[in-house]
């Protein structure tokens, strides 16, 4: 379709100016600096900088602490995405079945979306903190030596719980929308042919939800990688030891707290590559959805 337009020549640039100015000053310029820094090495006093090629990257990737944070990030992201999507799917399927109270359930299930990740972390830490957390109390009565502030795997469990909890609402909304788009006739036809509810779910509903699930998988991965910084910063601070130090937390910690510029910049660039890959996957998929409805 040929779009009808206004003939003005100068006005459109004026309209684009604010967005472009902000984009260049706060996005492109700093990103360019990160790229440049990642190829340089500065001496301890910041007096001399030297071009070192890819040696920052080599050092970062050979650093056991960095490899550790990759492992932590992978475990954390997979667990968070899986738990929050599984719980949300279960709840969305059940919410489709009920007749009475649908709106009531829906309203109450979507509020955690509005809770900041850092606060979600603090809520869970309040419930499970070793000294007076109400839910830590029964754990200790059962003989479990519960102390997420000192025990690595327990700390990890806690931030995974908090991060998944916060994301259930988001996934729930999308699964409900996805379920509503499935034609009822398909499910009824299967029911008439004698398929049980379980069989109907796994052979019809679940495959037809694949586009929604795939989309959510990408979004949840991005969420687990980036938006959960607040949870980790507020709850564990990457510790105990480095057991909950994710890639993003490490960039922040090395660059902003420990001021190791070259390494931090190299880590930033690695993260940039990850984001670009994820965005590309997301948009490729969306392109398909546009074409095939």
């Amino acid at each position: 379709m040929n779009r009808a337009t206004f003939p003005h020549k100068f006005l459109p640039y004026l309209l684009l100016l604010p967005q472009l100015a902000i984009t260049v000053v706060f996005f492109y310029w700093p990103a360019g600096q990160a790229l440049r820094q990642s190829l340089l090495r500065e001496d301890a006093f910041g007096l001399k900088t030297q071009f070192v090629g890819l040696s920052n990257f080599k050092r970062v990737l050979a650093d056991p602490a960095y490899v550790n944070s990759i492992t932590v990030t992978v475990v954390f992201s997979i667990a968070t995405a899986f738990i929050s999507m599984a719980v949300a799917l279960l709840l969305a399927v059940q919410a489709e079945k009920v007749i009475r109270g649908k709106t009531f359930y829906r309203t109450l299930l979507i509020w955690p979306y509005a809770v900041a990740p850092a606060i979600a972390g603090m809520l869970w830490l309040f419930l499970f903190n070793p000294s007076f957390g109400t839910l830590a109390y029964p754990l200790r009565l059962m003989g479990l030596n519960w102390d997420p502030l000192l025990n690595g795997p327990q700390a990890m469990t806690m931030i995974i719980m908090a991060a998944s909890w916060k994301q259930i609402s988001y996934n729930f909304i999308f699964f409900v929308a996805g379920l509503q788009a499935i034609p009822r006739t398909l499910i009824e036809a299967a029911a008439i042919d004698g398929a049980t509810a379980r069989k109907r779910f796994w052979t019809i509903v679940f495959p037809l939800l694949a586009p929604t699930s795939f989309f959510l998988l990408v979004v949840n991965t991005v969420y687990a990688l980036f938006d959960t910084f607040g949870i980790i910063h507020a709850v564990t601070g990457g510790g105990p030891g480095k057991t909950t130090e994710t890639l993003v937390y490490k960039v922040y910690n090395d660059g902003f707290v420990n001021l190791i510029l070259g390494d931090s910049a190299a880590q930033s660039v690695i993260l940039m590559v990850i984001v670009i890959a994820l965005t590309a996957i997301q948009f490729r998929y969306i392109e398909r959805r546009v074409h095939y409805g």
Partner: peptide
């Protein structure tokens, strides 16, 4: 070109440019 300049900012969240942005 402008459209793509805006689009690509999707790939540059704060987390990947913490220090230089702070400096700006």
């Amino acid at each position: 070109v402008f459209f793509w300049i805006i689009f690509i900012t999707l790939m540059l969240p704060v987390e990947v440019r913490i220090l230089p942005t702070y400096k700006v």
